[in-house]
């Protein structure tokens, strides 16, 4: 970089996992490169919107808390998604709002109260060298992030801010109440039935949509396992093929796995269908032990819902420019 960034946040304590994520890495999946990007697209988009950022600007995805950041100058930020007991210079800070972190003060994340992943946006977006067109950090592939090498934030790191980060505002200071999600509630996840659904037994298809599934401890950015009754499919495995975001695959043990942003690009287990982007976002905020239900939805309806939900972000004027 030729010009020195105007400011930065200093990492006092890294916590279990905090990574830079923009909307994702696209156009290279045929080389085996996964898409990355925010596990919760809804909270990610609102965090940028509160600051008038471009909707795909890079934000910090903070998983499970434990992170402490200190501002090197007055910095305008927005926090959306999980409630990770954040405090601003010692005062509790609830998510879904924009705020200013004064120079020298600390933003501290504690432990999860609701949800798993918080999204911290900075006015103008975080700055780093893109790798294959994206800043999204994929640790498994060693690509992206604030150093470009797929490493999550480490204590002592500085994360650069794209430009003057104190003036910008979005159309809202806070996310409207109806758009805030209480992640502690049981979730209903919309699923578009896929081509292999007919290969599952009738009983299994019924169970799939009438069971309170339990989110397993085996849950990360690659995928989330659901525990419940065994789903039987007459296809044990298939020839590997491309897997879309939200694909709900069922390995021979009959316990479904929803595949998320860092999934492998191809795979060979039969799939019940595909979760909608909102369902992926919602599932990514479930703590282990939480209950979810699956609800079938038609693809045209799901696409219309998605556009209604997200169109506002693409058309939002970048008022901070």
């Amino acid at each position: 970089m030729t010009s020195r960034p105007l400011g930065a946040l200093r990492v006092e304590k890294a916590g279990p996992l905090a990574t830079l994520q923009d909307s994702g890495r696209f156009g290279v999946r045929r080389l085996g490169v996964t898409q990355g990007g925010p596990a919760d697209l809804h909270a990610f988009a609102w965090a940028n919107d509160l600051l008038g950022n471009a909707w795909q600007a890079a934000v910090l995805e903070v998983t499970l808390g434990g992170l402490i950041l200190v501002a090197e100058q007055d910095t305008r930020l927005a926090l959306c998604g999980a409630d990770l007991s954040a405090t601003l210079d010692g005062t509790p800070l609830s998510p879904w709002q924009a705020f200013t972190l004064p120079k020298g003060k600390a933003l501290t994340f504690g432990t999860p109260v609701a949800g798993v992943r918080a999204y911290l946006a900075v006015s103008g977006g975080f700055n780093a060298e893109p790798v294959l067109g994206s800043l999204s950090c994929v640790t498994r592939e060693g690509l992206g992030g604030h150093h470009g090498d797929g490493k999550p934030l480490a204590t002592g790191d500085r994360i650069a801010v794209a430009r003057e980060a104190t003036s910008a505002t979005g159309s809202h200071r806070e996310v409207p109440p109806e758009e805030r999600i209480d992640y502690r509630q049981p979730a209903t996840l919309a699923l578009m039935p896929g081509a292999q659904i007919a290969d599952f037994s009738g009983e299994s298809t019924f169970r799939a949509f009438h069971t309170d599934w339990t989110v397993d401890t085996r849950a990360d950015r690659m995928g989330v396992r659901l525990a419940g009754p065994r789903l039987d499919c007459r296809l044990e495995s298939m020839i590997s093929e491309g897997i879309a975001l939200g694909a709900l695959q069922v390995p021979p043990d009959g316990q479904p796995i929803a595949l998320l942003n860092d999934r492998q690009t191809i795979g060979g287990y039969p799939r019940l269908g595909t979760l909608t982007p909102m369902a992926c976002s919602r599932l990514a905020q479930c703590q282990p032990g939480q209950q979810v239900r699956l609800r079938p939805v038609d693809v045209n309806r799901a696409q219309a819902d998605y556009l209604r939900q997200f169109r506002r972000f693409w058309t939002a004027p970048a008022s901070g420019q």
Binding site: F26, R29, R30, S240, E241, G242, I243, V299, L307, W314
Partner: peptide, 21 residues
Amino acid sequence: VDLVPSYTTLLVHYRPQQLTA
């Protein structure tokens, strides 16, 4: 957006902003 060719299939990922299903 992306093409994922594999042994017997091609996954075609497009922008829903520009095309309906």
